[in-house]
């Protein structure tokens, strides 16, 4: 039991908080627990959850992806041009959007690994480039995305389960098999002790590029999903998504120091952030108070992490 808690304790806390918040949300919602309410709720959190998965993978490798929001915006803008028309055209469009996002992520990885730039500054710079490209692709919000296909993705499967649930579950299911591979394990190993991983002959460079590529991949899925909700493209949505994805990762219990990470926790973190927004709306609290509550939740979540200071037995442990 103790081993289980030590390994899964932090994401379990965020999942518990999410369950509590969700129960409260359903209890005050005028329509209660219906499929429609759950679908609308999960749709709201899907893009951020996808982004949080990508950010977690990069954070595990001891990096950070500040360009994740711009990649999401760029993918969203590309989707507003390509994901429309006949089924074959839609399918090709989705593939193209995912390729664009993954290519952006791979570029980040190459700049970090071979350009030897610190992740913060490298992704800050590439983020500016991706924002610029998004503005070129779609200077003002607009475009169109096939409404029938978008309905499928934002409604329910066989009237039993919201499609968004499957999308979110799918993102975790993509990651766990990758983590079992040699390169996937190296992502975590490189975040823990890069030199040791390198000296042990692990493919550190390939693993880091893969981490950023996956981040771009999940960001493009997020951009697509926003497109399904709004049926259009908007180049300006990037910055807040970047910051919220980091917030979701931290609320989910992943430390920014790398070497360990909880994809499920980050998904819970993303949904917590979105549920707070809905709670404020249905509680009749002034919507202007929403940013304040979100900030306080993030502040409490990170302050919670400093409880470890009470457990240290040796002062030098403070600097870990």
């Amino acid at each position: 039991m103790n081993v289980f808690l030590a390994r899964h304790g932090r994401p379990l806390i965020s999942i518990t908080i999410l369950v509590l918040l969700f129960t409260y949300f359903i209890s005050i919602h005028p329509r209660g627990l219906t499929l429609g309410v759950v679908t609308a709720w999960s749709n709201q959190g899907t893009a951020l959850a996808l982004l949080a998965v990508g950010q977690t993978i990069v954070v595990m490798s001891r990096g950070i992806d500040l360009s994740i929001g711009p990649i999401l915006a760029l993918s969203n803008c590309v989707a507003s041009h390509l994901v429309d028309g006949t089924p074959a055209e839609i399918a090709l469009g989705v593939v193209a959007v995912v390729l664009v996002g993954t290519a952006c992520g791979t570029l980040n990885g190459l700049v970090v690994v071979f350009g030897r730039l610190q992740a913060i500054i490298a992704t800050l710079a590439t983020g500016a480039i991706f924002s610029g490209l998004a503005l070129i692709v779609r200077p003002i919000p607009g475009g169109s995305i096939d409404a029938a296909f978008a309905d499928v993705m934002t409604w329910t499967v066989a009237d039993t389960i919201p499609a968004a649930f499957l999308v979110i579950a799918g993102s975790a299911l993509i990651w766990y098999p990758i983590r079992k591979t040699r390169t996937g394990r190296t992502i975590v190993a490189a975040g823990s002790l890069e030199n040791a991983a390198y000296a042990s002959g692990l493919p550190v460079r390939r693993a880091k590029v893969l981490a950023y590529a996956l981040s771009g991949f999940f960001a493009s899925l997020g951009g697509l999903y926003i497109g399904f909700q709004t049926l259009s493209g908007d180049p300006s949505i990037g910055l807040s998504y970047t910051l919220n994805s980091i917030a979701a990762v931290v609320i989910g219990g992943t430390a920014l120091t790398g070497g360990v990470g909880y994809v499920i926790g980050s998904i819970a973190g993303a949904l917590i952030l979105r549920t707070i927004g809905s709670l404020i709306f249905f509680n009749g609290i002034d919507p202007l108070a929403q940013p304040f509550f979100e900030g306080m939740v993030l502040l409490s979540a990170v302050a919670f992490g400093s409880l470890r200071l009470l457990r240290i037995t040796h002062r030098l442990e403070m600097f870990k």
Binding site: I120, A247, L256, G295, M296, L298, L299, V302
Partner: peptide
């Protein structure tokens, strides 16, 4: 990086 991100959001709020 996290702490100042959080304080930024609180001031915004």
């Amino acid at each position: 990086m996290i702490w100042t991100l959080a304080t930024n959001n609180v001031i915004l709020g």
